[in-house]
Design a protein around this nucleic acid. Structure first.
Lengths: 163, 163
DNA sequence: TATTGTTATACTCTATAACTATA
DNA sequence: TATAGTTATAGAGTATAACAATA
């Protein structure tokens, strides 16, 4: 019977209320969801700091980048591409429009919709922010080799893009 | 991703306000953070459904599982292991205690702390829930081979566990 | 003086119902 | 009738400050 390595072992033979020295997370670490969430939070934390100078949250960055690469994209299309709900996009777009980064133009062939476009200032901000984001990717190479990073992204895509 | 077919754009050479047919997300898909978040959300969505019969959210599952594998663990230790803040754990523990899944016992060697333990009902629930969770892992094998899953988890750990 | 658990509270994120104008 | 954008609002998740009891 192994002796317990506690600061003050119980003096009697009664059952003892246990306490924990080192936390055992080994079971949770076998689960994909646990690891994916922890990793996502970790990466997003770094991303948040890097985007602070541009005053962009991850979702703002995603919106601006999609508008940059898809000029004329509609709110609805943005929502379905990013998994956000229409009511929650309105405020973001209002803020980005107030900062004169995006503008809402009438859609050429659908009177209900608005096409989204970057202003010149928006174009420049996105260029700079995307440059910073891509440098951040390279910086991950301190932990992961380029090959590992490529593999990781490929496997992540397999998870959320069932093809 | 819905692919809405809009009326054909006018074929003139004049300056035209563009619209978007197919959304180009290729730049965002080069970023680790974007892929990690999408994958985490996708996995957690499935996990949520699987845990619904047990009335456990992912965080409840994590808490119960850690208590199961670390009987006597304190609130503070749970918080640091799971990255949650003490004030936000209180309500969860109250709810789990009310459901008679966990009990707070006085800590054997620290009068300020409470040691957390599972009730017999909690033990059974965790056993069943962990079984379901592990079966879910195997189910991912429909998209990923066991080797790919192992690689993915290894790389995710490298991201959030800098060693 | 520092730490554990706790309360109160605020802020962000996400979700639902309903309205308007156009299709 | 259905869809795009919007408003209002509710709920969940996450954050900080401060307090009592104990170390």
């Amino acid at each position: 019977m192994p002796r317990l390595r506690l600061p003050r072992p119980p003096a009697n033979g009664a059952r003892e209320v246990p306490s924990v020295e080192t936390i055992d997370s080994s079971y949770l670490e076998t689960l994909l969801g646990y690891n994916a969430r922890r990793a996502a939070l970790s990466v997003i934390e770094v991303f948040l700091e890097a985007m602070a100078p541009y005053k962009l949250r991850p979702v703002d960055f995603s919106v601006l980048s999609l508008v940059a690469h898809n000029p004329g994209i509609t709110s609805r299309q943005l929502c379905s591409a990013l998994g956000i709900l229409p009511p929650n996009l309105v405020g973001m777009l209002n803020a980005l429009e107030k900062r004169e980064l995006v503008s809402r133009l009438p859609h050429p062939r659908d009177g209900r919709a608005m096409g989204l476009h970057l202003t010149p200032g928006g174009e420049k901000l996105v260029r700079d922010a995307e440059k910073t984001a891509s440098e951040l990717e390279a910086g991950v190479a301190g932990r992961l080799s380029p090959a590992e990073l490529k593999t990781l992204i490929k496997l992540l895509k397999k998870i959320y893009q069932p093809d």
